[in-house]
């Protein structure tokens, strides 16, 4: 698998503020890569370095095989960018901004442009200053996604979109990758990342704390089980089962958490007591991220 974006040991400080502190990142060609981390983690900084807008203090960054700082212009024919905080020219209409950015990038796909304008329900005749936040984002999204490029760098592209438009965004991104494109998607909307991403990277304080497929990450985490059984279950016996914690037994009701790889054993044990009802909640992304956001050190090992 070739890498569309490869970052190793990237450092970047603003004066005394350390924004990136040895970041590693690998985005495979053709995937949608979720890029997550708490506020101030360094996501936007990393993306701006990938665009050659900022210069890294040290470390390697390669985008589509090129050095973003030195080969900026040739690289930029092949990628498009949507900033987190889209600011449009106040006296250009949205349509003009889309055309302008497209032409500066080297041309845009007219059919896709028309299609996206329609699907995003965008009024392209309004002046930049009169758009709402979500509509400004749509302008930037249409401009980026109707470009004929290999890579999309999206920095919180949907933070102002309504649920309908969010759905349009998702399908448009999936169409883009179906055509062979690669997407790096920074976002705080976990459901969006979960729905779209093949793999994700979580960073915190400028460092990578976790990378991989969401499914694999789930593997190491806990599933919550709620069951009622025909025969009472012994508390101590359950607690002694490997991977089981937080056991509470109230009459015939059992609740506990179990490491996902020990789920089978637990179910066997409960089955022996005759399961009447069973509810299992797999770890939500929220749980996963909360843990990573709060305690990066613990999960780095």
């Amino acid at each position: 698998m070739t890498l569309a974006v490869e970052v190793t040991d990237l450092h970047k400080s603003y004066g005394t503020t350390v924004a990136l502190d040895g970041l590693d990142l690998a985005v495979e060609t053709g995937e949608i890569h979720g890029f997550l981390g708490p506020n101030g983690a360094g996501k936007s900084t990393a993306i701006r370095i990938l665009l050659g807008l900022l210069r890294a203090d040290s470390g390697q960054a390669t985008v589509l095989g090129e050095d973003p700082w030195h080969d900026t212009e040739t690289l930029h024919r092949r990628l498009a960018y949507v900033p987190g905080d889209v600011s449009l020219w106040p006296n250009l209409t949205g349509g003009e901004a889309i055309d302008l950015l497209g032409r500066l990038r080297g041309g845009l796909d007219e059919k896709r442009r028309a299609d996206l304008v329609a699907r995003f329900d965008l009024d392209p005749t309004k002046k930049g200053r009169t758009y709402s936040k979500g509509n400004r984002q749509k302008v930037a999204l249409v401009a980026a996604m109707s470009a004929d490029v290999e890579l999309l760098l999206l920095d919180e592209p949907t933070s102002g979109l309504d649920p309908l438009m969010e759905a349009v965004f998702r399908s448009a991104v999936q169409e883009f990758t179906a055509g062979g494109g690669t997407v790096l998607l920074s976002s705080h909307i976990l459901s969006e990342v979960e729905a779209l991403s093949d793999r994700i990277s979580i960073i915190r304080s400028g460092r990578n704390v976790e990378t991989g497929a969401i499914e694999a990450m789930r593997g190491g985490s806990m599933t919550k089980i709620e069951a009622t059984t025909a025969n009472p279950v012994d508390l101590h016996e359950l607690e002694s089962q490997s991977g089981v914690v937080d056991v509470v037994i109230e009459g015939d009701r059992v609740t506990c958490s179990v490491a996902t790889d020990h789920l089978g054993e637990l179910l066997e044990r409960l089955g022996a007591s005759g399961i009447r009802t069973l509810a299992s909640s797999p770890p939500t992304l929220e749980d996963l991220f909360m843990r990573q956001y709060r305690t990066p050190e613990a999960s780095r090992s």
Partner: peptide
């Protein structure tokens, strides 16, 4: 400062 140049420089426009 208004973030417009960022978008322009993300195209093939050189500094």
């Amino acid at each position: 400062a208004e973030g417009h140049s960022e978008q322009v420089l993300a195209t093939r426009t050189s500094r």
